[in-house]
Design a protein around this nucleic acid. Structure first.
Lengths: 179, 179
DNA sequence: ACGGACATGTAACACGTTACATGATTAA
DNA sequence: TTAATCATGTAACGTGTTACATGTCCGT
């Protein structure tokens, strides 16, 4: 909703391009699908916060390019001024880890290996600058957010590699001893 | 939904106690409110995955204690065996950071200070073992998850403190120079 | 006396995803 | 030819939150 406003503030864009942006440097922060973007854009247009200009293309559907209005800019500022609540996380991975003792050890190991692999891939994407925002350069906020993502993934990877034994072998190989 | 099953696997509990658990060591992983817990419990009971025993208390509403059935245990195993998808994160804080350049620097500083404060508080909670699960001791999975949370928060704190200049002063004090 | 913990539940609402529907162009 | 990219949108569905509704006991 208000995120579309925010993205538009970086330059005019179509719904398709906004979706692209959610796949780019934004991906750690929040996700969105067409089903939420297009209705939001329409609602914003109805409220006068964005304008829409349609470019008819010969053999494709019209490309509708949205631009922020003055009112939209004001609304964005207001939204952004709210103090942000805590991050909401839903980690099926950690849920699995909590109950790892109920699962076959080989499965747990597989899940962990998979997580490490996807995180490494993600890390490569982020570090090799797979940046596709409407505005090209790396502005302060984008740089910060990207680097934040990199830092979190690295920390996560490191932690998992150093502590996987807690969920992998522990219950099976050791009796609850002094330590 | 299936999370309630999982929690019940650690011991019988009432809806109220389950809610408690979501506020304890689980809080980083997923949240839940009464509005989702009670209906889930009823549905699970309807499907025969849990049983419910009501203890009438003199001056309070009946305390309904739910227990996992054999079928429930099987269903839980199946749910847990699915390979977990990527973590879903929604961070209003990072969104604010991305667009920090649109906001007054003092506000940005305030938001960052606030985030640091809440993270430090959270860290204290986690490290001082504010553990309230139905099962007392620190099983492998719980220990792993708790330590994971601690590691992530520490990494986050460290990153924010070392990189806040990227969103705070940068655009205002420095021209885009070589580095 | 007041607020918080104990204790359960419902109804309305908001949000977002998934899948569907359509259709051209281009690179493998 | 087959898949991916470009391009927009709708409808159904599920899930989860918020607020409401109720009532006691205990500590300050």
């Amino acid at each position: 909703k208000s995120l579309c406003l925010a993205i538009l503030s970086m330059g005019d864009a179509s719904g398709y391009e906004i979706k692209k942006f959610f796949e780019g440097p934004f991906s750690h922060v929040c996700e969105a699908s067409y089903g939420s973007i297009y209705p939001s854009l329409q609602r914003l247009a109805g409220e006068g916060l964005v304008t829409c200009e349609a470019f008819s293309q010969e053999k494709r559907p019209d490309k509708k390019v949205y631009s922020l209005t003055q009112a939209g800019r004001a609304a964005l500022l207001e939204d952004l001024s709210a103090i942000p609540g805590p991050d909401r996380v839903r980690s099926d991975f950690l849920i699995t880890m909590i109950f790892a003792h109920l699962l076959p050890p080989s499965h747990v190991a597989g899940v962990i290996d998979g997580r490490i692999a996807t995180y490494r891939a993600l890390l490569d994407d982020l570090e090799s600058g797979a940046l596709k925002g409407p505005a090209g350069g790396d502005a302060g906020g984008i740089a910060f957010t990207r680097a934040y993502g990199v830092a979190m993934i690295k920390a996560s990877l490191e932690f998992i590699e150093q502590n996987r034994h807690l969920v992998e072998g522990a219950a099976l190989l050791r009796a609850p001893a002094t330590e």
